[in-house]
Design a protein around this nucleic acid. Sequence first.
DNA 1: TTGTTGACCTCTT
DNA 2: CAAGAGGCCAACA
Length: 128
Amino acid sequence: MPPKKITEKPRSVLPGGGKDISFFEQVYDVVRLIPKGRVTSYGAIAAFLGTKMSARMVGWAMNGSFHVKPKVPAHRVVNRNGMLSGKAHFATPTLMEELLAKEKIKVKDDQIVDFDKKYWDPAENLEI
DNA sequence: TTGTTGACCTCTT
DNA sequence: CAAGAGGCCAACA
C-alpha cells in the first residue's frame, strides 16, 4: 500500500455552504466520534448514515482515512465478525493490533476479544 | 468515456 | 447448515 494516492479533496468542498457532504465525510465524522477503547463495524456506520448496504464504501473511505485530518481511528472499525479485515491495509500489518492494544482491546487471531462488549453502536450513542 | 474493483453486509438458493 | 449472488458509492485503468 505504498502508493496511497487517494483524492484528498473530495466533492465535500462545494459552493453554497458545503451542505452536500459526501459519504466519506460522514463516515470520517462518525469514526472520529468512536470512544476510546471501543470499536464498531462498517455495517453499523453505513446503517447509521442511512443505507446499510453501502458498507463497502465505508471500507473504501477508511483507505483514504490515513491522509485525512484530523486523523481517523480506522483501527476502531472492523467487520461484523470483529475480525481485523483491514489490518493488511495499515502502514504495517501489526499496526492495527498495536493501536487496539493501546486501547485495552485484546486481539486474538486477528479477531477482537469480547467484541460484543467493546462494540459501540453509533445509532444508539449519536443522533442525526 | 465505460468497466472493473474494493478494508462489507444481507438475502436467497 | 453452507455457499452463492446482489447491491451500495467512489476510485482507478
